[in-house]
Simulated scan of single mutants.
Amino acid sequence: MTDTKTNPGNFFEDFRLGQVIRHATPRTVTAGDQALYTALYGTRFAVQSSDTFARAIGYGHAPVDDLLVFHIVFGKTVPDISLNAVANLGYADGHFLKPVYPGDTLSATSEVIGLKENSNGKTGTVYVRSTGLNQEGDAVLSYVRWVMVRKRDEKSPASKATVPDLPEAVLPADLGAGCPKVAGKVWDDALSGSVHRFRDYKKGERIDHVDGMTVEEAEHMLATRLYQNTAKVHFDQLSEAKGRFGRRLIYGGHVISLARALSFNGLGNAFHVAAINGGRHVAPLFAQGTVYAWSEIVETADVPAQSDLGALRILTRATRDLPAKDFPTKEATAQEPGVILEFDYWVLLPR
């Protein structure tokens, strides 16, 4: 008798345009999750580190790190969207819509908004808009991602290609919902760790975040399990030894969080990731690789919803085994050092 109780995951042919998927399992976020996230990345932003600091500027208490929220919601989607993925290709139109606090319970849904078979006939690209909801049913996060997924049968006919029209960037008018009305006038630069505020940053400015962080095998697997991300390529060395790279691939979101944590040195008052405009995993990262990062200020903007705050649109590039003092843009390969991540996002900071 064949056992059909296990989940093989969805292949490209299983997705339908307009399909809505409710993902298991709801997750109550705890202070322990936040502490482990801090231990993994060393993030130091004051608002997420201190109840006292967060309350002083208008939060109920210290919120959960924005990217921890992103990873938890992302992890919910993996068993249904990307269990059979070859690669996660990119992100767009990401909105952080409401603060998340320890004790909140997050769940996720995804809508298939695009499908396109690749020319090799072996894979296809699936576009989904995923939404994270809290226990009240309020949306806390919404973003689009696209992922290359294997076909179950290479001979199966392709559906009509549909690629969604996505914005280049989230508009400044749509920023600010993901934090309460912040009293920037009581912001304490000494406690936040930086004297540089919104007015000190200019379009075109480049910042080398200086520090590097070497990734160990146990760290990236622990992080990915923290998010309940079940993608096979991150865990099974027996299987991956026979694969394209011969070893486990580090979850791309791990690189995003490393780059964000490293950016504190230079962007210490950029306390809130308000939106994700785009992102691209340029090249893989493996254990024993050292991550560096540098950022370019793409745009500065006022935030209508937050009079005491300003917004910076930032393009952060993370590199593997290449310090960023010369602001490198050369893309890494599996063997050669270089850029492994390009992440385009809005942050908020006091004026």
Results as ranks from 00 to 15, higher is better:
residue 230 T to I: 15
residue 88 N to A: 03
residue 246 G to R: 11
residue 163 V to A: 09
residue 283 A to C: 13
residue 60 G to V: 14
residue 251 Y to L: 06
residue 271 F to H: 12
residue 330 K to L: 13
residue 228 Q to D: 13
residue 209 H to F: 07
residue 328 P to M: 10
residue 310 G to E: 02
residue 265 N to Y: 11
residue 334 A to E: 13
residue 143 Y to F: 14
residue 70 F to Q: 13
residue 265 N to K: 15
residue 188 D to T: 01
residue 268 G to Y: 01
residue 199 R to L: 01
residue 67 L to K: 03
residue 145 R to I: 00
residue 248 R to L: 15
residue 292 Y to I: 07
residue 236 D to P: 08
residue 190 A to Q: 12
residue 210 V to D: 09
residue 38 T to W: 13
residue 47 V to S: 06
residue 203 K to V: 12
residue 190 A to I: 11
residue 343 F to D: 03
residue 94 G to T: 02
residue 250 I to T: 14
residue 176 G to L: 04
residue 237 Q to L: 15
residue 169 A to P: 02
residue 322 L to N: 05
residue 255 V to G: 04
residue 51 D to P: 01
residue 118 N to E: 13
residue 58 G to P: 06
residue 291 V to A: 13
residue 141 L to S: 04
residue 271 F to Q: 09
residue 229 N to A: 14
residue 287 A to D: 12
residue 109 T to E: 13
residue 6 T to E: 14
residue 239 S to D: 12
residue 108 A to I: 09
residue 82 S to D: 04
residue 302 D to F: 11
residue 302 D to W: 05
residue 254 H to D: 00
residue 349 L to S: 04
residue 164 P to N: 02
residue 245 F to V: 07
residue 247 R to D: 13
residue 171 L to S: 14
residue 137 G to P: 00
residue 195 V to T: 10
residue 312 L to P: 01
residue 232 K to A: 14
residue 98 K to P: 00
residue 121 G to S: 06
residue 15 F to W: 02
residue 141 L to Q: 05
residue 5 K to L: 11
residue 110 S to C: 06
residue 182 V to Q: 01
residue 299 E to L: 00
residue 341 L to V: 08
residue 327 F to P: 00
residue 167 P to E: 05
residue 58 G to M: 09
residue 192 S to N: 06
residue 13 E to G: 13
residue 25 T to V: 13
residue 348 L to N: 06
residue 307 S to V: 11
residue 123 T to Q: 08
residue 170 V to D: 03
